[in-house]
Design a protein around this nucleic acid. Sequence first.
DNA 1: CGCGATTTTGATCAATGTCAAAGGTGGTGG
DNA 2: CCACCACCTTTGACATTGATCAAAATCGCG
Lengths: 225, 225
Amino acid sequence: MDRYKTGIRTFPAGSDLYYQGETSDEMYTLLDGWVFRYQILEDGRRQILEFTLPGAFLGFQPNRQAPMTHSAQCITDVAACVFPSRNVFELFRANPELALRMAWITSRDWTLAQEHLTNIGRRTARERVAHLLLELFYRVRLCDPSPRGDSIELPLTQEHIGDALGLTSVHVNRTLRRLREANLVAVEGHTLRILDPDTLADIAGFDSEAVLQRPLSTEPRPLHG
Amino acid sequence: MDRYKTGIRTFPAGSDLYYQGETSDEMYTLLDGWVFRYQILEDGRRQILEFTLPGAFLGFQPNRQAPMTHSAQCITDVAACVFPSRNVFELFRANPELALRMAWITSRDWTLAQEHLTNIGRRTARERVAHLLLELFYRVRLCDPSPRGDSIELPLTQEHIGDALGLTSVHVNRTLRRLREANLVAVEGHTLRILDPDTLADIAGFDSEAVLQRPLSTEPRPLHG
DNA sequence: CGCGATTTTGATCAATGTCAAAGGTGGTGG
DNA sequence: CCACCACCTTTGACATTGATCAAAATCGCG
């Protein structure tokens, strides 16, 4: 895989890796920083589909000539490994193991999207927020297992959270306050502390197995890095 | 692929192909009938993730030992081609083209899930219903191009629609009535007629390209059939 | 014909959105 | 080092959407 990369590039916070509606001839392995995928409606309403962490693979679309179905924006400054998407399928044909990993990665993304669908479609604001915070907490932990403790760095605004959960940022604010008042979480600045993970998981109906989906040793690993 | 199938089986309407929380050692190519994938919360709330039509591939999960993250239920009587999932990865390794197709299929499912996320998260009830009806209309048409015309058979209850859209069936009913009163659609029994596709697409913010995603000839085809 | 499931409608209620304005915060340039 | 500015958070008052509860009408089917 390394042979095909065009190099490592950095992107400033707020910039987009690619845009919905345009074709993209690059793919990315996120090395450092946070990115989110999102869709925009004509009138500006925004749905955040997923927050992606280092290790994520971005920009793959099975149909290369088709315009991207979503955009991807950097939340923080980002470092990413860039690949041309020109010859993905040839590459996959030449390296079956890569195709397998791609299937694995896409499938995991899809499972996460399903959790998000259920979260948005069938849970209350309180449950949704609790669920997202737990998801991000455990995903960040998984991504960087070193800092044991009850807090992570969370570079999101309340608007990000709202757009991911189908809520307004105002309502996210009120919901977070109530969770704070119940001594379940503490969100100060860009730090999230999970004070009562069990109660929170109970509220959220959070199943860490379903959300985290680690690869098994006998099965494919991530594409890169 | 055919060499690996254990055979064609039929399932009655209302039965489940597999259940969330259990492991499954079978995969299915849907040959005839409608199926939906769904998740259930502890208290019974249900989220329908996707309605699947003939040609769909069901039951693949990258991590075979893990319990299924969702269930799959037959809406109508169903005929499906059944495969053991025991040795998917060996199979994929032996047939790289299959892995590629799997990546393609999963990626398409994921794209559809993204549309659903935006639909549920950021659209009003009226927009959601319009969007779903158009999606199903065009997908059914794509699946069976023979019956040109403005109507399709739609074997869903209003509760199915509600559970797919994060609404109650009561509200779906009222919303459908308003769409009918505006002469946009006609839903009688199990037949859906799209009377004014353009206005409807306008309301729904519906982009048929994004939802339908046909394979290109140079790129992978569906797994089977 | 009769029964269970589904659709339809009404009345009322709760959750969340909208609008508006007042604090905070961090970063940047003078 | 300070002042300013853009952006973010927080809070209040009020509006609206969609949920809930309940009951009647209708449909499909044995």
